[in-house]
């Protein structure tokens, strides 16, 4: 499903070069939920963004099924993200002026499809957000916020879900809900990458990959 081949990402800032990931190769199959572990600064987020068609690798290739998103035009890549990739972040990144339902539905805007509203309702139900459906993000608990973000990420049934420390701010109960949902989603036939510091969270994944200094030290 997701194939990273000899991917290297070098940031250059003020003339100084920082190699965030270095000649990294990784294959994630459909149906797999993979935990990415590693010390802070080892390149986890970079790996996620490169995989998510948001950050050009300096070299190497990224294939999602049979598509290389970095060979596409910017607009094609946007459409590709809308259709095939879901993101969950530690900071939730909800749109502050939209309520729960509207936040979930933003994912459908660049990729209009029939039945979206029903799927949004279904996800909202699934994540027990029905009583909060017309609340603004500022009126939600942290756990609720992350569940909204999760519903948004899954709305378009993406084949690849990328979660950057999705449980980093959550209490154990909410963390369990989120991790269960991600793993279940992988089981249904998607590839899921979960960046986490939390060993108990990593344990729930189908596979654990350890990064160090931009390189895989344990491919699980």
């Amino acid at each position: 499903m997701l194939k990273l081949n000899q991917v290297k990402k070098v940031y250059s800032i003020h003339g100084r070069e920082v190699t965030a990931i270095d000649q990294l190769s990784l294959v994630v199959e459909t149906g797999q939920a993979v935990a990415i572990e590693g010390a802070s600064g080892c390149g986890k987020t970079t790996l996620l963004l490169v995989s998510g068609a948001l950050l050009h690798p300096t070299s190497g290739s990224v294939m999602i099924d049979d598509d290389d998103p970095y060979q596409m035009s910017a607009n094609q890549r946007s459409a590709f993200r809308a259709k095939h990739i879901g993101f969950v972040f530690q900071q939730f990144h909800l749109i502050p002026y939209l309520d729960v339902l509207q936040n979930v539905l933003t994912a459908s805007l660049p990729n209009k499809q029939p039945g979206t509203k029903e799927r949004a309702d279904m996800l909202i139900d699934q994540f027990q957000l029905q009583p909060r459906i017309h609340h603004l993000p500022a009126e939600l608990s942290v756990g609720e916020k992350q569940r909204v973000a999760l519903a948004r990420a899954l709305l378009n049934r993406p084949k690849l879900v990328l979660a950057d420390e999705p449980t980093g701010n959550l209490d154990p109960a909410n963390a369990t809900i989120v991790l269960d949902a991600l793993c279940t989603y992988a089981d249904q036939g998607a590839a899921v990458l979960i960046v986490t510091h939390d060993p108990t969270a990593a344990e729930r994944a189908h596979r654990r990959v350890r990064l160090d200094n931009g390189q895989i030290v344990d491919a699980g």
Binding site: L54, S78, R81, F87, I95, P96, L109, P110, N111
Partner: peptide
């Protein structure tokens, strides 16, 4: 941040 997440969700620059 809002604009960044919308871009991640697949919004084009023109959107």
């Amino acid at each position: 941040p809002e604009i960044a997440i919308l871009r991640a969700l697949g919004f084009r620059a023109t959107h």
